[in-house]
Simulated scan of single mutants.
Amino acid sequence: MSLMKPSPLPHPPHAVSRLRSSRLERSTRPFLARGGPKGERCGGCRLILSHCLCELRPIVPTRAGVCLLMAEHETLKPSNTGWLIADVVPDTMAFGWARTEVDPVLLAVLADPQWQPYVVFPGEFVAPERVITGLPPVDAEQNGNKRPLFILLDATWPEARKIFKKSPYLAQFPVLSLLPEQLSRYRLRRSRRDDHLCTSEVAALCLGLAGEAATAQALEMYLDVFTDHYLRAKQQLNVDWEDELHVQMRDLVEGL
């Protein structure tokens, strides 16, 4: 088993990274993540330095975009997978959610004529007339050839329901209700139901519906690699850089 760790490449901060920095600036107490000497983690992937995976980040140009509405503490969680979406999908926007105020930049994004926003949420909790289960063709007249923008509520399930109900500016948009056939592979937090997918898994399904199969595949594999590194760091195990998962991930990144 090879223990050699690749040197990370520098990447500019993306939307989730900037939102996290803003959240930390507002904190009254320092945030100390567990796991390294004095909580030291990579600023690019949030993992302890010995398990950094920045070298394996697959940035894939897409026509679709992702808009993350993030609950108060999500950006501070090292296990948050909205960060992975922003790593992979260049047109990822991220906004902190608050019941009493709305970021004007968010409203501007939702009103931008280049985008057709879709709120991704289970259809069983939504009025049937708002629910769709698929996307129109790219050149369909009804969407004016707009780019799909997937609005993902990055939060625990109770928080996501609150965000959906308490955000009237989302009421004008169709609700994309996913019908995933696979069970969640996410192992970093517990869920009462195996069909509750993590945020990056939801994004991968949306990208697949939008015809972005390569991006969806890259995001799925990237989640697997992130999970492997995260759990190995937690269990104080070395990363096997030459196992099948890492070889496939390197091949994917080199082919982009």
Rank of each mutant, 00 (worst) to 15 (best):
127 A>Q: 13
75 T>Q: 05
172 Q>I: 09
197 L>A: 05
141 E>L: 15
120 V>L: 06
74 E>T: 00
45 C>Y: 05
80 N>A: 10
49 L>N: 03
170 L>I: 02
235 Q>R: 12
182 Q>M: 13
205 L>V: 14
89 V>S: 02
212 E>Q: 03
49 L>F: 09
121 F>P: 05
4 M>A: 15
91 D>W: 11
139 D>M: 14
21 S>I: 15
162 K>N: 09
144 G>T: 08
38 K>M: 15
6 P>L: 13
252 L>W: 10
47 L>D: 01
142 Q>S: 11
46 R>M: 12
35 G>K: 02
193 R>E: 13
10 P>S: 10
210 A>F: 04
64 A>S: 09
192 R>W: 14
206 C>G: 06
196 H>K: 03
26 R>E: 15
122 P>V: 06
100 T>H: 08
207 L>I: 08
244 E>T: 05
180 P>Y: 06
14 H>Q: 08
184 S>P: 10
176 L>G: 05
4 M>W: 12
139 D>N: 12
73 H>A: 11
46 R>S: 12
155 A>E: 03
223 L>G: 14
38 K>R: 14
6 P>A: 14
89 V>D: 03
64 A>V: 10
170 L>V: 01
244 E>A: 02
216 A>T: 03
201 E>S: 08
17 S>P: 02
255 G>T: 14
70 M>Q: 07
223 L>K: 11
213 A>H: 11
198 C>E: 07
120 V>W: 03
239 V>I: 15
229 H>L: 06
129 E>N: 08
211 G>Y: 06
238 N>K: 12
52 C>I: 04
253 V>T: 07
193 R>P: 15
83 W>K: 13
228 D>P: 11
220 E>Q: 14
203 A>Y: 04
192 R>V: 10
24 L>Y: 08
201 E>C: 00
15 A>T: 01
187 R>S: 08
54 C>D: 01
11 H>Y: 15
38 K>F: 14
16 V>L: 09
84 L>D: 00
206 C>P: 04
175 V>Y: 06
143 N>R: 12
29 R>M: 13
255 G>Y: 15
